[in-house]
């Protein structure tokens, strides 16, 4: 049975992913901003079969000094956890960030710097223990920069590269690092947009993440056709790409 620490546990993708692990009777340490919502998620996981669920409120993930303490607490509560999942991230408003860089910095801090900090701490722990699973939600938007969301894309692209390097380092210590690159996921945030064929349900995305963790996969495009889409997008020559409206 796994002992899972989940950051951003009240996000829709987190809820849908963790449900699957709960059915395996795993134990959880859930971290999020809102205590009541965390408790709702926790109760659900318990009914679904979780052996143990703890919750921890963290109001600001960018309080870097607190990171080590949070990981220590999780380790104590679960008596040595072996799975670490990061689900949080913000979309930001591209136009606002173009005009006011402090907003862009906030996004980069949340999506990239704070995640890199948490994961680095956990990586050192897992490396020593010579086992463990790290899974982090990145995005297909990080595969190539586009004018419509390059701050968000850069934060996720940076994260993907960071995880790639870490995977290389930890491969010698029996630790698996999974980079999850979801495409469009149907959430209340995207509901006003056309729910075309490109949109996947959080339920489906959660299931694929669960399977990828169990199979020790390296990179997961979910749904898988995004691999094909991004393969093409990545191979458009820059002289053409820079003129495209995307």
């Amino acid at each position: 049975m796994r002992k899972i620490v989940a950051l951003g546990a009240t996000s829709l993708i987190a809820q849908e992913t963790l449900k699957n692990f709960a059915k395996d009777k795993d134990s959880f340490f859930l971290i999020g901003r809102n205590e009541e919502k965390l408790n709702e998620v926790a109760k659900n996981l318990e009914v679904l079969g979780a052996s143990e669920v703890n919750v921890k409120v963290v109001k600001d993930v960018c309080d870097f000094k607190a990171h080590q303490e949070i990981i220590n607490e999780a380790d104590k509560m679960l008596s040595n956890f072996d799975n670490f999942f990061v689900f949080y991230g913000v979309l930001g408003n591209q136009k606002e960030m173009e005009e006011d860089f402090s907003k862009a910095k906030e996004l980069l801090d949340v999506n990239f710097i704070s995640v890199a900090s948490f994961v680095s701490i956990v990586a050192n722990k897992f490396e020593k223990e010579k086992r463990g699973n790290i899974a982090v939600i990145s995005s297909v938007a990080g595969d190539r920069g586009r004018q419509s969301n390059y701050f968000y894309g850069a934060s996720k692209g940076g994260l993907s590269v960071f995880l790639e390097g870490l995977r290389n380092r930890l491969s010698f210590s029996n630790v698996n690092v999974l980079t999850v690159k979801p495409g469009f996921v149907a959430t209340p945030m995207t509901a006003h947009r056309e729910k075309g064929l490109l949109f996947a349900s959080a339920d489906y995305v959660g299931k694929t993440i669960y399977k990828a963790v169990k199979k020790n996969k390296n990179v997961l495009y979910t749904p898988c056709f995004w691999w094909g889409i991004m393969f093409i997008v990545k191979h458009i020559p820059e002289c053409i790409f820079k003129k495209m409206k995307m």
Partner: peptide, 16 residues
């Protein structure tokens, strides 16, 4: 952390 409020995402649709 990502979370979404109900009110800011209202939309009118003929899909339901």
């Amino acid at each position: 952390m990502s979370s979404s409020s109900n009110s800011s995402n209202d939309f009118i649709t003929d899909k339901y």
